[in-house]
Design a protein around this nucleic acid. Structure first.
Lengths: 115, 115
DNA sequence: CATCAGTATTCATTTCAAAACATACTGAAT
DNA sequence: ATTCAGTATGTTTTGAAATGAATACTGATG
């Protein structure tokens, strides 16, 4: 392959736990939207995702993390809502940091991409 | 999150071209099976994949690479077949090399995985 | 004690990509 | 000129995952 075309390396990063995939960019976006909107319902709307799906992802995250990432508030004024725990905030930060480092490394590897 | 659970980082690597994803581990496996079996038909069987799908993947690869990765032989003794071109062989080697480096780097990052 | 908006949960419906099926086409070899 | 196995390509089926719709539950607040 001569080099009139340009190729570049893409990378998808996620965190696994004994039972399988635990935290990837999709769940991170969900966490961020929960932080932004204060509820799973509105986070889901924001992302044009079904509430049911969003709720399940939150369940999954919470069960598989050491400590819940999302605190859910039932009933009360405004019906309740959801907010990130400290662990949730930390998870976002850690994920992005690691993802950034890996993507930067991958970018450097692009120069080895000679067919 | 304290640390009784163990988490680890996973990474998926692929190569993009202007029109989108061009070459990932799935197509690499297909290439390897074509090399091994000498035809798209048998490579597909090996992978329990539909011939049609395998054929389409080969088309896509060939069109988006600078030079075809797979040479297809039509008719003749045994009906024809398919074999890797030099570019195809190179693609496998380059892909694995880059993937290996990125995965090793990602592995090192696991130690930064403190929640 | 009725309201309200969000959580929790079940069940039916849709979507859409992969697989399965069907059918021509190719060309060396006999 | 028939055979044969693989390529080429259109059409139909199917199955899993996402969505949508429906319903009960929660609890602070007025």
């Amino acid at each position: 392959m001569p080099e009139n075309k340009k190729y570049n390396i893409e990378v998808r990063v996620w965190i696994e736990e004994t039972e399988g995939a635990f935290l990837g960019i999709g769940k991170i976006w969900l966490l961020e939207n929960i932080r932004k909107t204060g509820s799973i319902t509105n986070a889901a709307k924001e992302m044009k995702m079904a509430y049911r799906q969003a709720w399940q992802l939150v369940e999954e995250m919470n069960q598989r993390a050491e400590k819940p990432l999302v605190e859910k508030l039932l009933g009360g004024k405004g019906g309740g809502g959801a907010k990130l725990t400290e662990a949730g905030e930390k998870a976002i930060a850690v994920f992005y940091e690691i993802e950034k480092r890996i993507k930067e490394f991958a970018q450097k590897e692009t120069q080895n991409l000679k067919f």
